[in-house]
């Protein structure tokens, strides 16, 4: 059994319910206009849409890298939109995030990058002296093994290829024992073959840990292949929400405004 297995830490209380979410960076110019959706099922939920439509903003509102203007974001009974300070920090531990540019700390080793996923849990002195609990270190090794990077543990992160870095990024997110994983264009900086491998890995994480994986992605074909559900966004509103099979040409035309999506 892999370290990603659901038996290790089942994701309880993971229902994400967003209601009437609005985000304005500048007053009177909403980027997100009244978004409501709920995600309760495990597996990949793909968010598609042209660039500039607010996909990243939506994802970043959920873990509060961006502060929403109004609306609520309920996760297992708490409203993330209202949290501040210590409670916000505690809530963020349960939200793993995977980035387009991987966002590893390049001058730290791979294993330390994975252990950074525990920074929200371990006391500061342990992080400073690198005295992470043995159980955490064991899990980090196991996770690296399961993403195929066991031999790279003590290499510096800047020695890895893009695909390998993204695997470390995913391992770091899983290290948090999240109830939900957010991924903002996780494949956009990768070649097609590596992109498939990364989507494969994200799908596996969602399946085995039994948690939803919310993925922003602009490659519609790739999204269709791995998503159990697709959310189409255009100009800050949701225009399609349903299974990949139900996504018609007409929807895509509405989302992308023409045939532009067929690269």
């Amino acid at each position: 059994m892999s370290a990603l297995s659901a038996a290790e830490a089942p994701g309880h209380g993971r229902a994400l319910v967003i209601r009437n979410l609005v985000k304005e960076y500048r007053k009177g110019q909403p980027v997100l206009r009244d978004i409501s959706l709920s995600v309760t099922e495990p597996g990949i939920v793909a968010i598609i849409g042209p660039s500039g439509t607010g996909k990243s903003t939506l994802i970043r509102c959920i873990n509060r890298l961006v502060d929403p203007t109004s609306g609520s974001i309920m996760l297992g009974g708490t409203d993330l939109a209202k949290l501040q300070g210590e409670p916000l920090r505690a809530a963020r531990r349960r939200l793993g995030m995977v980035f387009q540019e991987y966002n590893l700390v390049e001058r730290l080793t791979v294993i330390e990058n994975v252990l950074c996923g525990r920074l929200g849990y371990v006391p500061v002195w342990r992080a400073w002296t690198r005295r992470f609990p043995e159980a955490d270190i064991a899990r980090a090794f196991a996770l690296l093994d399961s993403v195929g990077l066991a031999d790279f543990a003590t290499r510096r992160a800047d020695q890895l290829s893009g695909g390998q870095r993204q695997r470390v990024g995913i391992a770091r997110a899983v290290m948090q024992e999240p109830d939900l994983i957010l991924a903002d264009e996780p494949t956009s900086s990768l070649d097609p073959k590596t992109s498939v491998e990364i989507m494969e890995l994200l799908a596996k994480v969602g399946r085995e840990r039994d948690i939803p994986v919310l993925v922003n992605i602009h490659n519609v074909a790739l999204a269709r292949r791995y998503a159990l559900r697709m959310i189409g966004m255009s100009k800050g509103v949701v225009v399609y929400d349903g299974p990949p099979a139900g996504l018609q040409e007409s929807h895509l035309a509405e989302i992308y405004g023409g045939e532009g999506w067929m690269e």
Binding site: R92, R93, Y102, V105, G117, L119, A127
Partner: peptide, 23 residues
């Protein structure tokens, strides 16, 4: 980017300083 990643993982400020900025 890396700073944001650590904050998103719920790391306290001092840990972000040491693990995100210092390296």
């Amino acid at each position: 980017g890396p700073i944001e990643a650590l904050r998103a993982a719920g790391a306290p400020r001092r840990s972000v300083l040491l693990k995100g900025f210092w390296p």
